[in-house]
Design a protein around this nucleic acid. Sequence first.
RNA 1: GGUCCCGUAGCUCAGCUGGAUAGAGCAACUGCCUUCUAAGCAGUAGGUCUUUGGUUCGAAUCCAAACGGGAUCGCCA
Length: 595
Amino acid sequence: MSLHENIISDSISEYVSNKYQVSKSDINLVFQQTRKEFEGDVTLVIFGLTKMLKLAPPALGAALDALLLTIEFEGGPLVRSTNLVQGFLNISLSDAYWLSRLKQNSLELPKTGKKTVVEYSSPNTNKPLHLGHIRNNLLGHSVSRILEAAGDEVVKVQIINDRGIHICKSMVAWQKFGQGETPESSGLKGDHLVGKYYVAYDKAYRAEVAELVDKGMGEDEAKAKAPILQEAQNMLREWEAGDSAVKTLWETMNNWVYGGFNATYERLGVSFDKNYYESNTYLLGKDKVLEGLDKGVFYRKEDGSVWADLSDAKLDQKVVLRSDGTSVYMTQDIGTAIERYQEWQMDKTIYVVGNEQDYHFKVLFIILDRLGYDWAKQCYHLSYGMVDLPSGKMKSREGTVVDADDLITEVITGAREKTLELGKLDASSPAEQEALFAQIGLGALKYFILKVDPQKRMLFNPEESIDLNGNTGPFIQYSHARIKSILRKAAALNLDVTAEWKQPKVLEPTERELIQQLVSYSAIVLEAREKLSPAVVCQYAYDLATNFNRFYHECHIMNEERAEIKQFRLNLVGLTADALKRALFLIGVDAPERM
RNA sequence: GGUCCCGUAGCUCAGCUGGAUAGAGCAACUGCCUUCUAAGCAGUAGGUCUUUGGUUCGAAUCCAAACGGGAUCGCCA
């Protein structure tokens, strides 16, 4: 609730509770933003009150009107005027109030003293990153920045799934077909090189299965007995046994992949404070499962496999250790969670993982709870929807996956073409221009993805993702650059943008709207933290940019003749630029000084 | 089949702790660059908020069911 809502609310509660002998706690006032077609800044919905007090809206409205006009704020009236339409009391606040709010507005929020670990990305090391990872990365990174802006201490981590049969498949294929190829010799990015052999594996595997089926073997049997699969399985066993040749190859190929991932992360502008590797944590998970078995949290079947019985939580049985004693996905997530808590003692953990794993995390959190970890209740799965393409769902087997590196290159190319088309580039160096194209292209891509509510499945249309007009990242960047241009002009004339302004007699409507938007910044950050949704920030940034553009169109700034008003407007747009830049920062988008 | 998520304009999305005539952008059509960046501003047109029932003074919003789309229920990760 904002300041004026609190003041008005207190005042009305006091009045009503005294006059009508009702408890203050029963008085629930509903505020909403006044609709455009009515005059006012904020609207109090009084249906609830009229019902509780058994009064007609006009009678109550008149009483409240008189009351509101007496409220003082810093020596002047808080409320300029009100009007009642049915059960809606539209309230216009005084300009003095808004200007005071603007002067005291801060874009810094107090520290909460809470520590949050955000896990995101979590790639497998057998193939390059794709569009799905991009949504994941942008969400994780943006949520981290939002939490930080809201005052939390944030630790960004990724768990790298660096071990398992999928890696062995790439390794086997590289051994068979690779002829010693390396990123250097092939000129391929390391993750793409390893991905190439994962594809080669799959191709060989399917050929072998088809051949076995031709020879009369059943399909299921053929799938299990294809020689190349057996080679991969054998390699996994050798890996687990610590075979040095296998380990060396594994390390080599994984390092190629890490080099590739890091390059992609850097282009995307995301980062991590710490990496966890499944190869380091899966054994801890196994120990913890065995402890849990002793404590009766799990049970062992005759074949030796270990299970969690979650039927009392309306879930199924879930395997946590295979009959041969090796770990499954759940095992290592248990280990990682425990290790991480020991390391950070965090108040909250957020797992940014796609919604296809809703069930997995539900189970994981229950198991952690049953193992006796009270922090299990502070674990949260930030579940996001799949990314669809206009052609349908992404499927790696059908080659319809959008590669992350290709996509980044494409949006930058798109930004370059469209910017050159507009022909608005200042005389800047080629390097500076390229940097700008990257800022704009990625701004478009990030905004396009983050403006959608994380929980929803989204359609990714490559053409629309590089749009520069309308509700897009570049529109917001442009609004910021426009202000910067004005401020440069002011600086050239030795005008001090940060100097104190004198209060204009009357605010223009577009000025007032811009101020209202500016002072709601901190509330928006808190809402975004509450909802863990960068989309909230996107909407805010867009609204703020729209408000600025309307103001810009209605009011002169540098051409304003009245010096005091000019000074005020310079201040106002300066503050707007700051807020725009901060909001963009929260969604990982750069704010160019000119464009 | 069980569980979970989604269904709003031609398209992509807001709005969902119940409130006024359901909002943006794109696409279509009209205006506005001899004053601060037209990547902009103003406007026209476009909707039985999937359907049905319920709760309520009031439902896109809450509840139930149906229909449609998706995910998941592996000793894969």
